[in-house]
Structures are given as structure tokens and as C-alpha cells.
Design a binder for these strands. Structure first.
Length: 631
DNA sequence: CGAGGAAAATTA
DNA sequence: TAATTTTCCTCG
């Protein structure tokens, strides 16, 4: 067996254990010492650009291609246990919750869950190199099925999530961030591709799935899957009471599952408080709205925006991915402390680990995604392990975000790109993705109830500038999303989403796509502009804490979790047909509405998790310069 | 539209 | 009750 250092760094907090073939899976989020630079925890991923045609068109979308199996990445929070019942309640017997002995997520493929040894660091280090460059062929495509899934026993992730402190609270996804040791990290990277494939093979495909918007076509096999495995899943639309259709459907609506729009409808915790006492396992075949195999009353009829939205979210996470990519999403939801996880019971959620079986669906599921794929912008199909917004960030049928430009030349398939929460290096070889002009340290994000508050600006008065060095052969897309300010684990921020700004003041073309329920802005980097671009089209949308916290599987808390980072990624096509992915994040940006008299310096606590937090954000006035890096 | 301020509503 | 979050209002 082989272990790999996911973080490709000195100190790894987690390790990956692979099967015989030793092929390392894509690096998972890594926790790293606070002192490390962003670059430090990077890993370079080079993916095979073109998945075998067969996979792309495969009805099942089996993951046999070199896709970094996102689906295989399980967050500690969902590792295992229990099957959901058809009611979609995800009830799981307590007894089933057992790190080691828990029931397998699904029957077919055999997955063994083993605890990680304490000395994972060593092992990881030993294989550190492996992660730097993942050869799709070697690592992903051909890797034989891994028989073993090593899971950290430590339930500590829960503890961390329980941590009341705002700082730690931070994230829900925070199991990562908080965890500083191997054991505490309860991440799991299992490679279930093969298993998934096998399982997929068993499905009966063809059942029309509902697309996010309700259109048919989702991922066939979903039901079969559910039935076969007896997993119902909680994908049911958000519970009615809590999730009533929003009054208006804007492009941002999909982002928030909030009950109803309007002042009066502010979500009140009542229904939101969810008691999660047991681990839940959700297997959502595909995320079609009708997840539950059995039509249960609980599932409100589709049609309401909310519902769709909610459902879609799940869809997005995995199936929306591209055709060949993530056929399945394996979703296991474990219980999360009530404090951090308030959700309606039925909120359907496809959690992080959900398994999706999708066939060709992609298109239907997510327009945006489809778009991205088509235009070759490089969308990714990450399966968010952290359930970050997956659940409801779906694309309502009538999605409103901009469509891909017709003229786009596909540079590479988006199918095998690394998930948004995977660490990536800022530079590799001759290439470097650099933020030449950092954003201001403060930006007032706007709520859905407000109008846009404009694009993020640079302290210099202009806008942030990002440049790709070492490559200028042809246009390439720069992806941008709002990430956490958590130093140790950069991932999409659950409470903020990038918002595309348009208007005369915006000179930069861009388009929004959704990747695993995270809005991503794609901006072209053109050779004629020296692969440099001024980000004047990116605003920040604040999602209401109550909405996000209600999401099933969401463990992050929004309160005082107001710092974000602008995260940029590029996927550079390589001569050998692979794609090199680089990522860089800006300095932290405080998005809190300014409150008179408030001392911003205290806000720092909100995001970091733990030990390695970045230095407190300077007061609003005190600093703002964006030069910390690149100017 | 893009801000800046503040009141109202929630939470802890 | 104080701290925060959201929603509203107003202004250029």
C-alpha cells in the first residue's frame, strides 16, 4: 500500500493510503502549519486532458478515466455509516456508527475502512513526490481498484466541529482546518472509483432523471442505485416549511435555500434546527430532484424554486460535472453536532460524500456546467467533500447566469479537474499564477436582498490583477471563486459566493459557472494581454448564515466567519495532453458590513481555525494594501 | 449601480 | 443584553 502526502508538504496532517497499486489519489485538502505560505501546501495536479471517448459518452459516466476521483474523496464528516432509509430521513442506527466497523457506504464494491496510523506523516513524506505530479494514467486512470479505504478512527472531527469558538467554528469543513494532527484530520481519501464503477455497472440506467430545473435527464440509475442499496436519501427537497419557494428567482436564488424571501420570511431557526444525532449516509444516485426512490410525502413536489434549488445543489456537486466524470457521488453523511449543523431533517442533502450516478446527464443538470464544459473553460467537477454548499446551490432551471461564449475554444476537458477544495500550487516549473495586485482587505459583500455592491477593488483604487506567468500560447480561462481565509485549508466559502458584476464599469468579460455548488467566475486570460487580467467583474455575495447553516451537512457557522480570499485557478494544457492546475489565493478580505465603531481587528478570529490562523486582519483602515504578494 | 449608514432582527 | 447579522434607506 502506498501512502501519499496530499499536501506535498513538509508536514502533512493527513495521509492517503492507497491500494496495491499505490496510485495516489488527488490530494485532498490539507491542513498545514500556519506559517506555510499558500504555495506550500500545494500539490500539482496534472490530469489527463482527454478522457477516453468512451467514458465521455458513456451513459454511466463511469469514472474509469483518469479523473481525480472526487467522488472518492470523503470528508470525515461523512464517512460512513448507515444507510438512509427510503424515507429520506437518513436515520441511522447509532450502533452503526463506527469508524471501523460501520457499514459500508454501499454494498457493492468492497471498501474496507481502516484507521490511519498515527505515523502518517512519515509515510506521507515518503511519498511526497507522488503527489506533486499525478499522472492520470498512472495514478488515476489505471489505478486498480483500491481495496482499502483507510479512515482515521478519530472522531475528532466531530469534536472540532463542536468547537464553539468562532474561530474554530469556522468551518465546518473545518474538520480539516481544525485538525492539526493526523488523527484529528479525519479525512479520508478513498478511492472508490473502481467501486463506483462496479456499482454503476449494476445500475439500470435509463430512468429519466429530473434535471435541476426539473427537466428530465438527470442521472439515470439513481433510483436503481438507491433501491439497490437501500439508501434513500435525504435529498428530498428542503422541507416544506422551511423551504418554501423563494419569491423571486434570481440568478442568485439558487444559492440560497432560504425559505422565503422577504423580510417576514426570514428563516427562523425553528425548522432549521436539526437534531443530528446519528450518522447518516446518503446515497444519492444522481441528484435529481427525486432522489428518494420511494415517493414520499415528505418530498414536496418539484416545481418550487426552492426545491429545485435544493435538489440541484446536490446535483451540481457531482453530476453536473461533465459527462464522463463523475458518475457517482458517494455521499455519506455523518452526524454533526447540532450546534454546528442546523438543518431541517429532510433537507435533502447530498452530502459531501454522496455518490452520484449519472449518465450523460450533465447537460441537464447544470447548464452552467455544461457550458463550461463545452467551451472548454475548464470547469471542474469537484465533489465537495465538505458539503459546502452543495446541497442547494443548484441551478434552477431557468438559470440566469451568463452562458458560455460561443467562440470559446475548448482547451481541455473539464472533466478531470481537481475539486475546488484541493490544494494546488501557485507555481510549477515555468508556470506561475500570480496575483499582481491584491484586493483591498475589506469589501462589503451584498446580500441577496440588496443590490450589488460592486466589484472587489484593489487598495490602489483599481481592481485586483492576476497574471499567469510562463504560458501565453493561447487563451486560457482563469477561474475565480470565494474561498475561506482559513490558512490551513483553503476551500470554497460556504457563506460567500463570487458574484459576477457587469456593466459599463466592467471591462473584463466573464461568465459564471457552478462547480460543485460553488459559483465560479471564469475570466479569459489572453496572450495579447500577457495573460494578465484585472478582476473588475467580481463582487461578493453574502448568503445568510441561517440558510447555509440549515443545509444538511453544513458544519461551518457563519457568525463571525466573514473573511474570505479570492481564489484563482488556471488549468494549463500541457503538451502531453495533460493539464496542469495552479491556484493562488489573495490576501484575506474582510467582508463584514462595516459597523460603526467596530474594531475589525477582532474579526480575525472568525476564520482561522485553530492554530494556524493568519494574522489578524488589520483594521479597516490600517491596512489595505494589496501588496502582499505581488505587486 | 454602488456606497455608506443605520435601524431592525437575530443570536449567543 | 451585547454582539452580529440583515434589511432598509438615502445619496451621488
Amino acid at each position: 500500500m502506498t501512502t501519499a502526502n496530499c499536501g506535498a508538504h513538509d508536514e502533512l496532517d493527513f495521509k492517503l493510503v492507497f491500494g496495491e497499486d499505490g496510485a495516489p489519489p488527488p490530494p485532498p485538502p490539507v491542513s498545514r502549519p500556519a506559517d506555510l505560505e499558500p504555495d506550500d501546501c500545494a500539490s500539482i495536479y496534472i490530469f489527463n486532458v482527454d478522457p477516453p471517448p468512451s467514458t465521455l459518452n458513456s451513459p454511466l459516466c463511469l469514472p474509469h478515466h483518469g479523473l481525480p476521483s472526487h467522488s472518492s474523496v470523503l470528508s470525515p464528516s461523512f464517512q460512513l455509516q448507515g444507510h438512509k432509509n427510503y424515507e429520506g430521513t437518513c436515520e441511522i442506527p447509532e450502533s452503526k456508527y463506527s469508524p471501523l466497523g460501520g457499514p459500508k457506504p454501499f454494498e457493492c464494491p468492497s471498501i474496507q475502512i481502516t484507521s490511519i496510523s498515527p505515523n502518517c506523516h512519515q509515510e506521507i513524506d515518503a511519498h511526497e513526490d507522488d503527489l506533486h505530479i499525478n499522472d492520470p494514467e498512472r495514478e488515476y486512470l489505471e489505478r486498480p481498484s483500491r481495496d482499502h479505504l483507510y479512515l482515521p478512527l478519530e472522531p475528532s472531527y466531530r469534536e472540532s466541529s463542536l468547537s464553539p469558538s468562532p474561530a474554530s467554528s469556522i468551518s465546518s469543513r473545518s474538520w480539516f482546518s481544525d485538525a492539526s494532527s493526523c488523527e484529528s484530520l479525519s479525512h479520508i481519501y478513498d478511492d472508490v472509483d473502481s467501486e463506483l464503477n462496479e456499482a454503476a455497472a449494476r445500475f439500470t440506467l435509463g430512468s429519466p432523471l429530473t434535471s435541476p430545473g426539473g427537466s428530465p435527464g438527470g442521472c439515470p440509475g439513481e433510483e436503481s442505485w438507491n433501491q439497490q442499496y437501500g439508501l434513500g436519501h435525504s435529498l428530498s427537497p428542503r422541507q416544506s416549511p422551511c423551504h418554501s419557494p423563494r419569491s423571486s428567482v434570481t440568478d442568485e436564488n439558487w444559492l440560497s435555500p432560504r425559505p422565503a424571501s422577504g423580510p417576514s420570511s426570514r428563516p427562523t431557526s425553528p425548522c432549521g434546527k436539526r437534531r443530528h444525532s446519528s450518522a447518516e449516509v446518503c446515497y444519492a444516485g444522481s441528484l435529481s430532484p427525486h432522489h428518494s426512490p420511494v415517493p414520499s410525502p415528505g418530498h414536496s413536489p418539484r416545481g418550487s424554486v426552492t426545491e429545485d434549488t435544493w435538489l440541484n445543489a446536490s446535483v451540481q456537486g457531482g453530476s453536473g460535472l461533465g459527462p464522463a466524470l463523475f458518475p457517482f457521488q458517494y455521499c455519506v453523511e455523518t452526524d454533526i453536532p447540532m450546534k454546528t449543523r442546523k438543518t431541517c431533517e429532510d433537507q435533502a442533502t447530498v452530502l459531501p460524500g454522496k455518490l452520484e450516478l449519472c449518465s450523460d446527464d450533465q447537460g441537464n443538470l447544470s447548464p452552467s456546467r455544461e457550458t463550461s464544459i463545452d467551451d472548454g473553460l475548464g470547469s471542474q467537477y469537484p465533489l465537495k467533500k465538505d458539503s459546502s454548499g452543495d446541497q442547494f446551490l443548484s441551478v434552477p432551471s431557468p438559470f440566469t447566469w451568463s452562458k458560455p461564449k460561443p467562440g470559446h475554444t475548448p482547451i481541455f476537458r473539464t472533466s478531470s479537474l481537481p475539486p475546488l477544495d484541493w490544494p494546488l500550487p501557485t507555481h510549477f516549473g515555468q508556470y506561475e499564477l500570480k496575483i499582481e495586485v491584491q484586493p483591498k482587505t475589506h469589501h462589503r459583500a451584498h446580500y441577496e436582498t440588496e443590490g450589488s455592491r460592486g466589484a472587489v477593488k484593489a487598495s490602489t483604487g483599481g481592481h485586483p490583477v492576476v497574471k499567469l506567468l510562463g504560458y501565453s500560447e493561447k487563451p486560457i480561462n482563469l477561474q475565480m471563486f470565494i474561498g475561506t481565509a482559513d490558512d490551513r485549508y483553503l476551500r470554497p466559502h460556504a457563506f460567500y459566493q463570487v458574484h459576477r458584476i457587469t456593466g459599463k464599469t466592467v471591462a473584463t468579460a466573464s461568465q459564471e459557472i457552478i462547480i460543485a455548488s460553488t459559483k465560479v467566475l471564469e475570466i479569459p486570460l489572453l496572450p495579447e494581454n500577457n495573460m494578465s487580467v484585472s478582476i473588475d467583474c467580481a463582487g461578493i455575495l453574502k448568503l445568510r448564515n441561517s440558510d447555509i447553516e440549515l443545509r444538511k451537512g453544513e458544519t461551518d457557522i457563519g457568525r463571525k466567519n466573514t473573511r474570505v480570499r479570492l481564489v484563482f485557478r488556471v488549468h494549463i494544457p500541457q503538451p502531453n495532453g495533460k493539464v496542469l492546475s495552479l491556484q493562488t489565493a489573495s490576501i484575506p478580505v474582510e467582508c463584514l458590513n462595516e459597523v460603526i465603531g467596530r474594531d475589525m481587528s477582532q474579526i480575525s478570529v472568525s476564520q482561522g481555525t485553530g492554530a494556524s490562523r493568519q494574522a489578524p486582519l488589520p483594521g479597516p483602515d490600517s491596512l489595505d494594501l494589496g501588496r502582499s504578494d505581488g505587486l
